[in-house]
Simulated scan of single mutants.
Amino acid sequence: MDATPDTARAAPPHPRAAAEDLPGAVPHQRPAVTELRLSAFGAHRAAVFPLGPVVLFAGPSGSGKSQALAALEALARLGSGAPLDRAFPDPRSRIPDRARADGQGRRGFRIGCTVDGPLGPVRLDLAVQAEPELRIAGERLSAGGRILLGTALRDPGRRTVQAAWLTGGSTGFTRAPLPDDRLGTALLPLRVAGATAGQRQVLAAAEQVVVALRSVFPCDPQPERMRAPVPQGEGRLLEDCANLADVLRRTRLECGTRHALLTGAARTACAGPVEGLGVRAAADGLVSALLERGLGRPATELGRLGSGELRFLALALVLLTGPGVLAMDPAAELLSARQALTVLADGLDRCLDPRQSAELLRLALLSCARGHVRLVAAVGPQTAAAARRVPGVAVVDLEV
């Protein structure tokens, strides 16, 4: 992916450009990833996956379900400013099957996504060199068929890529080096002045992509980490949901409506009667959550629940809440009400019975109908078969 040539210097930091001020902008549309492209990534070649509000990947082991979700998670981490080695901790496993090295021993992979929002579709494409060392080989940000940012690895001896972004006017493009271990799109707000129409278009497109990627929350509840009491904290759910009890304490105090919805879901998915979701605080500051059984029955601590019940409660909580209750750093460029949370769940139905899986899909559709939440998940064959009969759920069938 070659950078667009230019000779101008890099611009200083700038105030944020408003996308709504640009021609053709659509106000109040929440940025969201609507397409995932795996041009060459693991088992995938030339794969394009549309991502609607609720998308489930299905297929046999080895078909690439987890790889598809891992690609989107990696893009999200890069969009949040993470370095390349944190986004791809095992990059060699992402090199396409049977990929051959070039004359310099280099191999890698290519992924990308499309983000819809106020500017319409904005494309981000990324080429990553995994061998002999991990680095970005090229990046392209484009909208309306026009390249807004292009980078290329010109000198393998330097830890930079040559970048060029649209300036407009007599200059055309600005050219400058960027780090080869960071997503250039996420760095643009620090480098582009926003003084010209071209620069404002670049900033608005970068903002749209970054907002959507930073609104992705990977969630993989680990029941064995959720059973013990936890210290009382700020009540923001971790990706492994180990602090579920503390988050339930917070939602019970601050989010009465959503807590009631979660209690209703628990009645459907948990064994025995459920009157409420309670919290018990000990003198040592540790917090335990419990199912209140009602009618004088003793409550059941969450630590005694089955793995499926714990995973269900954690995933239901994620779908019914939002970024403010999750351990994530949402984009500050837009108000939370104008952002759409994308939940990533590899093995959404792991340990769940059909009744619990069906209730999770119902909750996902309920939340997605409001436009605040989207779900991308990998599921087993039984859940996929049932989901095909549910309006509003898209099932992507993969083959080995």
Rank of each mutant, 00 (worst) to 15 (best):
L313I: 07
P91K: 02
R297N: 15
A193G: 10
L305Y: 00
C241Y: 09
D155K: 06
L51H: 10
L56A: 01
G296F: 05
Q129G: 04
A25Y: 02
L134Y: 11
D349N: 04
P31I: 11
D349Q: 05
L277S: 00
V325H: 13
P89T: 03
S357R: 00
R280T: 06
A385V: 07
A71R: 08
V33K: 07
M226W: 14
I147T: 15
G52A: 15
L295P: 10
G272M: 13
G324E: 14
L149Y: 06
G169N: 09
Q67K: 05
G108V: 10
G235A: 02
A143E: 05
L295F: 14
A289T: 01
P15H: 12
P50T: 05
G52P: 14
S170A: 15
L238Y: 02
V209R: 04
P89S: 01
L335D: 15
L348E: 03
G145E: 10
V376Q: 00
A163E: 00
C270F: 08
L237A: 02
L124Q: 02
A283Y: 06
A269D: 05
A101D: 11
A176Q: 06
G62M: 06
A17I: 07
A3Y: 13
W165T: 06
T300P: 01
L366V: 13
A70V: 08
L366M: 13
S142C: 09
A130F: 13
T185Q: 03
L238K: 04
R94H: 10
N243V: 00
L360D: 05
R94C: 10
L51A: 12
L178D: 02
L188M: 12
L262V: 10
R350A: 08
A47F: 08
P118W: 13
G105H: 08
C270P: 04
A152L: 10
Q232L: 10
E399Y: 11
G108A: 08
G79L: 01
L320H: 01
L244V: 01
K65L: 12
A40G: 15
M328T: 12
L365R: 13
A386K: 05
F217Q: 02
A76P: 12
R200A: 09
P83H: 08
V393L: 10
R45K: 13
R258G: 03
T196E: 07
C255D: 01
R30F: 05
R175W: 06
A340I: 00
L141N: 10
V343E: 01
L38I: 07
G52Q: 15
L334W: 11
K65P: 09
R94S: 12
V216S: 12
E224W: 10
D125R: 15
R236L: 00
P177V: 06
S215R: 07
R158T: 11
D155P: 03
R146W: 04
A385Q: 09
P121Q: 07
D125L: 14
S307M: 05
A394V: 15
L262K: 05
D329P: 01
G169D: 08
A3M: 14
E133Q: 11
G235K: 00
S367M: 03
V396A: 14
A197H: 04
A316C: 06
T34A: 05
P189D: 11
D116P: 02
V210C: 05
L244C: 02
R191L: 14
E131G: 09
R135C: 13
D284Q: 02
G308R: 00
P53V: 07
L360K: 02
P223M: 05
